[in-house]
Write a protein that binds this DNA or RNA. Structure first.
Lengths: 343, 343
DNA sequence: ACCATTAAGTAAATCGATTAAGAACCTACA
DNA sequence: TGTAGGTTCTTAATCGATTTACTTAATGGT
């Protein structure tokens, strides 16, 4: 009788009276045995109920897994709630699904990549994970990594052309050469401190998103024949309402009071708008404010935010494609200026 | 010198001059070695950059993976687009994340569970997968399976109390004992055929969702002293616009023309409403129509659909909890009648 | 001083596969 | 007939761990 247990390559081979290798080859390398032999084996396996080599063992041996971990900025919960993030995920999954690759959701709140690193082929990392240890680990991990919307200086990344987009949006906001510009920057510095930034030289060659955007702003400012004061740039350590409000308040109270605020995220821009309105300023008459991202709330706000909007789903598709190609490169995605009444 | 390669349990053991088993025990079974030894080993590993046993190998040996596959009814794409599905996912992920379990998304379009079965602990299956082969495989697979919103007669499942909910919604729709009732059933039969169903006896003990709902309807009908004709029940093989429209048209043209339509899904109910309006009937004056599910479109439709609404996020939490408990049971989740103008 | 326990650590089998190297056979050509 | 070349299949090492059964040493009771 046939054995009652669940079949393994070994037991099947013994049952059929051939070697392990032959069964393995029947499934994986048709050129290694005669066609007749192969079909005979495959048929027998089917009949006995052996559905092919165990994937876990196969993966261990081969070192490939057909799984990619999607590292989320925050909890999985956040990811499916946020429409921008959802459409990114839609793009990623469409490409992976077509290639028979499975998607593992990995929360950015985890503090250790190690819990998954041993059974995935690599990582697609959507935005900077909340837990900073993860970032450090991603820099070091010996697998392919594609980052989206941020850089860690390795493998591939997908970004909007930050410099160009920032240039465009700044250009739109600037109107006269006596405009008084201030910049509310996001993560210009490595340390987590909210402060004014006086020294700009070090940013000129920086590859971080913030530095790219800063260069776009600078270029537009210089194109408009405006001189940017040494003390007109703020660094906000994270995209939170609290920090943004403090920085915005400080900027709007500074002398000379800015009439153009270039903000590196919509969240910052919205906080700035709230502060400005609270101070009795009118937008855009007294101060023009522009953001970056294109979040929904910006479009619902009164006045509607002028910002840079990106195609998230395409971003997902590109990230996944880039991952599969295993190439080291930086891809750029399209963006559109979304013109509101805030500038 | 320390070896330059990536560490394995074996190489670490050799380096430290202890056996494989001792290193393994240091990580997994503290009681198997002295505290001093253990701390010494752990410290040395940390120093050398060995972050613990390889998870893939560990999983192969142990047969546990800390991954559960979420089987989606359709593509991943669909899942993140649909708000009800998204909130279900949110519930699932919240519970799993808390337990250190990873979530693998598995499309219901796949035709083979085998591509993942070897490296997951089991399956949470949200609704009947589009690909029917998957259902067959789920019935047979030697891992824990929790099904949601449908039954395959094994392990655990999460459902609304279909019979009670159907009873309630039918009760609400029925008003006088001369009401002429028709039932638009979903998957009452195994075969994929759109037809009238004349014989009800076989359904009385059936455990499928459809049979449970049917019993609820019957109970309400009999409570209202109404006699349901032998030819007043339709079977719709799948929840699609096309089938639903055909059945609805047929039911609304039958004699005596029904003035109450009990529909087993919102999609069916909406199709029925469209057909009724197309036929010049007014709702609810000429015909009262109720659905089941609580999808958004039903609430936007004019007249607003009366239906049964469920708490999807809680459903997700319960499904995950049930999965983790590995118990074999059926859980019920709350529901509310959502009263519109369609009845 | 003797034997029974207990603690600490090790050797080796095992999980389920892949694959390089080589054996056995067959064909064909000089 | 001897040998080069090509098929076809097998042997055995390997991936990176866990765990049972066993050895050895230390402890304790009488």
């Amino acid at each position: 009788m046939t054995k009652p247990k669940t079949w393994t390559l070994k037991s099947i081979a013994k049952e059929l009276g051939v070697s392990n290798a032959t069964v393995s080859n029947a499934f994986n390398r048709p050129d290694q045995l005669s066609k007749a032999r192969r079909e005979e084996i495959l048929a027998a396996c089917k009949k006995l109920g052996y559905y092919g080599p165990n994937k876990a063992a196969q993966s261990l041996r081969r070192g490939t897994f057909n799984i990619v971990a999607l590292v989320l900025p925050d909890s999985v919960e956040y990811m499916v709630s946020d429409p921008v993030a959802s459409s990114f995920m839609r793009g990623v999954s469409a490409v992976l699904e077509k290639n028979g690759i499975n998607l593992l959701l990995f929360s950015g709140n985890n503090d250790n990549l190690n819990s998954v690193v041993d059974f995935v082929d690599g990582f697609i990392c959507y935005g900077r994970p909340r837990n900073k240890q993860l970032v450090e680990q991603l820099k070091q991990v010996a697998k392919h990594v594609v980052t989206v919307d941020f850089n860690i200086g390795r493998d591939a990344s997908v970004n909007v052309n930050n410099q160009q987009a920032s240039f465009d949006i700044a250009k739109h906001a600037l109107q006269k050469n006596d405009d008084r510009v201030a910049i509310l920057g996001l993560r210009l510095l490595d340390n987590d401190v909210l402060c004014r930034v006086y020294e700009h030289h070090e940013f000129e060659a920086g590859q971080s998103i913030a530095h790219q955007r800063l260069r776009g702003y600078h270029q537009a400012i210089s194109d408009a024949d405006i001189t940017l004061g040494d003390d007109r740039t703020w660094n906000i350590p994270e995209s939170s309402e609290r920090y943004a409000s403090i920085a915005a308040k400080e900027a709007l109270s500074s002398t000379p009071r800015p009439n153009v605020l270039l903000c590196m995220s919509d969240l910052i821009a919205l906080a700035a708008m709230r502060e400005a309105l609270k101070m009795g300023l009118s937008i855009p008459e007294d101060v023009r404010i522009v953001g970056f991202d294109g979040i929904d709330e910006g479009q619902r706000f009164v006045p509607k935010l002028t910002t840079v909007h990106q195609n998230s789903e395409e971003k997902g598709r590109i990230a996944a494609t880039l991952f599969l190609s295993k190439e080291q490169q930086t891809a750029e995605i399209d963006y559109q200026l979304q013109l509101g009444q805030s500038s």
